[in-house]
Every structure is written in C-alpha cells, then in structure tokens.
C-alpha cells in the first residue's frame, strides 16, 4: 500500500510538473483538444476554426485589438487615443497641401492614415509579428491552410498572397513558402 501511495505521489508530481511546463510554451501540436492559454498555441487549421471567435468561412474586416476596433476609414485619432501612445509616429505631410499621413507603430502592428475631410482616417493596418492575431485567430507564421480553414476561400490567391475583399477593404495575407509573413487590412477601391 505504501508503495502504491509513493507511486501515486510521484505520478501526481510528475503530472503536475508536466502541466506547469506545458503552460505558456508554444506547442505545435496537432491535438485538436490542446488547451488555450491566452495565446493561440497551435496552427492546426481545425483547431483554429474551432477556436475562432468569427464564424469559420467568414472574415472580419475590422480588426480588434485590446478591446479597440480598428476599421478602415475610421477616425484614426480616436483609435490612437484608445490604444494609447504608440512606440513611434512618423508623419508625412502631403506634397504642397495641408494634410498629413501618419504611420503609428505599436508592438506587433502599425496603423497608416490619410487625411480626408479634415479627419485623420485609417488607411491600412499591418500585423507585423506573431504577437497579435486577426479576429479569426490567424497570425504571422500560420500556414495558408490555417488561413483558409477559418477565413474560407480567398477572393484572390497567388503564391505570394491570399486576399479577401470586402466593401472598400481588403484583408491580405502575404506568404512565403506557404506561411504568412504579414497581414494587412487595407483600403481598397
């Protein structure tokens, strides 16, 4: 009996150790039941489709980060105020005229703006690394299969990109070797 207790204790300790070690580490598991720990830990298409907050096969064109929605043509000043101070700001005055375009750089993403109707409007949002993800759960480094699993068939696709076209906006996944290298929400006429 004592041996059984000891064995049980060791097994319990080992189990607890394994569980604690698994938390917070990136796991490229194909186990569709792998736990979420605050970040997407697997690029398995089926898992992503299951975990996405957006209905699989649909695309959300207004990106949400830290509770703030960033839509193309939205008021960029209000968005920047909600997001807080960017890491850096670059301003590019228009040739000859008043009106300035801005690029705000945050951790993991940038927001480009353009001036129109006396407003500073969002022109493009670029997700630059894997610390952020789209509303569908796609991030830099994911495979094209993972993208199409949650977003459905793209409007346009080449070896270099897969693009989803909405009204006045496009969600573009740029690819290299079949993996996402950057993600862009951009104004599209």
């Amino acid at each position: 009996m004592k041996c059984n207790h000891k064995v049980a204790a060791v097994l319990t300790a080992l189990t607890l150790t394994a569980a604690l070690t698994a938390c917070g580490e990136s796991v490229t598991s194909t186990d569709s039941k792998a736990p979420m720990t605050g970040t997407i830990e697997t690029s398995d298409p089926a898992y992503m489709a299951e975990q996405s907050s957006v209905k699989p096969g649909t695309v959300s064109y207004a990106w949400k980060i830290n509770g703030t929605e960033i839509a193309i043509n939205a008021d960029a000043d209000a968005i920047v105020k909600a997001l807080g101070e960017p890491k850096s700001t670059f301003d590019a005055p228009s040739c000859a005229f008043e009106g300035t375009s801005y690029t705000y750089t945050y951790d993991g993403f940038t927001i480009e703006t353009y001036p129109q109707d006396n407003l500073n409007k969002v022109y493009a949002v670029t997700l630059t690394d894997a610390t952020v993800q789209t509303n569908e759960g796609v991030k830099v480094g994911d495979t094209l299969e993972a993208v199409t699993a949650v977003c459905g068939e793209p409007s346009q696709q080449t070896a270099a990109y897969a693009s989803y076209n909405g009204e006045g906006v496009a969600l573009q996944f740029f690819l290299e070797g079949g993996k996402v290298t950057s993600i862009v929400y951009t104004y599209k006429m």
């Binding site: 670059f90 346009q156 290298t181 862009v184």
Partner: peptide, 11 residues
C-alpha cells in the same frame, strides 16, 4: 529622419 516606416507588402 526618424522612424521612417518600411513599405507594407503589396499584392
């Protein structure tokens, strides 16, 4: 010139 952004990828 500071914080000059690199171009985002194009289709």
């Amino acid at each position: 010139a500071e914080n000059v952004p690199t171009g985002r990828p194009l289709e």
